[in-house]
Design a protein around this nucleic acid. Structure first.
Length: 268
DNA sequence: TCTGACCTGCGA
DNA sequence: TCGCAGGTCAGA
């Protein structure tokens, strides 16, 4: 499922609805998504805690619960729902948090590619690269990273150790907006192209956040609604349809075993 | 650097 | 029935 805009949308919604609430009871069902901790222990550690803060780092989400920090990665199909009754697949709910005020928060992951962990210190993510919407992500830094090594630009964008948070949808969309072919080598971009791509990445992600993310299949917001950004995609999943800029047919190719969408005419 | 595996549901 | 889906990760 979820790339930076979807995880950010979820983080904001959880902040808005659950911040400061006291956890009364936690139900956690044993599943492969619990890493380095079993479901029972996770549940008992969380009970009685409060959600003091909600953070997103790349595609990770974590809560500050004072003396412990539950960490979530949503994999391909992980979502948070404000009630079990909203779930289409209650058999795939792995975690249910009940708050003292009667509200609840569920984590559902149909494909079980997600991860749930518990840290006893504020978590660090040393394996992740720069946050693309942070001040730290400058054009200068990005250009330097592009020139470090020859890597296919689509792979470069999806590599979480370089820029954290971009996945398959937004890689295709950012490259389209910048007019850059997905098979280009990262170090072949000239100054103008690097700047276009830099700006496109930020625009594409910001717009997607404003539209509550892209729902292609599993992703829902915490209230169970779909995002809106799928109505504004230029190339992703639009193979065979006309390019919104030039009218040429959008192409689909496989890059690193992932579907990749682009316009042969607009992207060079 | 690339491929396949992990898992389940859905649509063709 | 088959192929495909927002992501990682290990192993070749």
């Amino acid at each position: 499922m979820p790339e930076l805009p979807e995880v950010e949308t979820i983080a904001r919604a959880i902040r808005e609805r659950y911040l400061g609430k006291e956890i009364l009871r936690v139900f956690a069902w044993e599943s492969r998504i619990y890493k380095d901790i079993n479901a029972n222990e996770f549940a008992s550690r969380l009970s009685g805690r409060r959600i003091n803060a909600v953070h997103r780092v790349g595609k990770y989400l974590y809560f500050d619960c004072g003396d412990c920090y539950p960490i979530f990665h949503l994999g391909m199909s992980g979502i948070f729902l404000q009630s079990r009754t909203q779930s289409k697949y209650p058999q795939h709910i792995h975690l249910e948090i009940h708050f003292k005020d009667g509200s609840e928060l569920c984590f559902q992951d149909v494909r079980k590619f997600g991860k749930i962990k518990l840290s006893y210190h504020p978590p660090q993510f040393p394996e992740l690269g720069v946050e693309p919407l942070s001040e730290e992500f400058t054009l200068h830094k990005f250009s330097k990273m592009l020139n470090l090594k020859a890597v296919r630009i689509k792979n470069f964008l999806m590599d979480q150790s370089r820029v954290a948070g971009i996945g398959n949808i937004y890689a295709s969309e950012a490259l389209f907006r910048a007019g850059i072919h997905p098979l280009r080598e990262s170090n072949s971009l000239n100054r103008e192209e690097s700047e276009k791509l830099y700006l496109s990445i930020r625009e594409v992600l910001r717009e997607a956040i404003e539209r509550f993310g892209t729902t292609y299949s599993a992703y829902r917001t915490v209230t169970g609604e779909t995002g809106e950004n799928q109505n504004f995609l230029n190339v992703y999943q639009r193979n065979g349809l006309p390019c919104p800029v030039c009218g040429s047919e959008i192409q689909k190719i496989i890059v690193n075993s992932r579907s990749t969408f682009f316009c042969e005419n607009c992207q060079r």
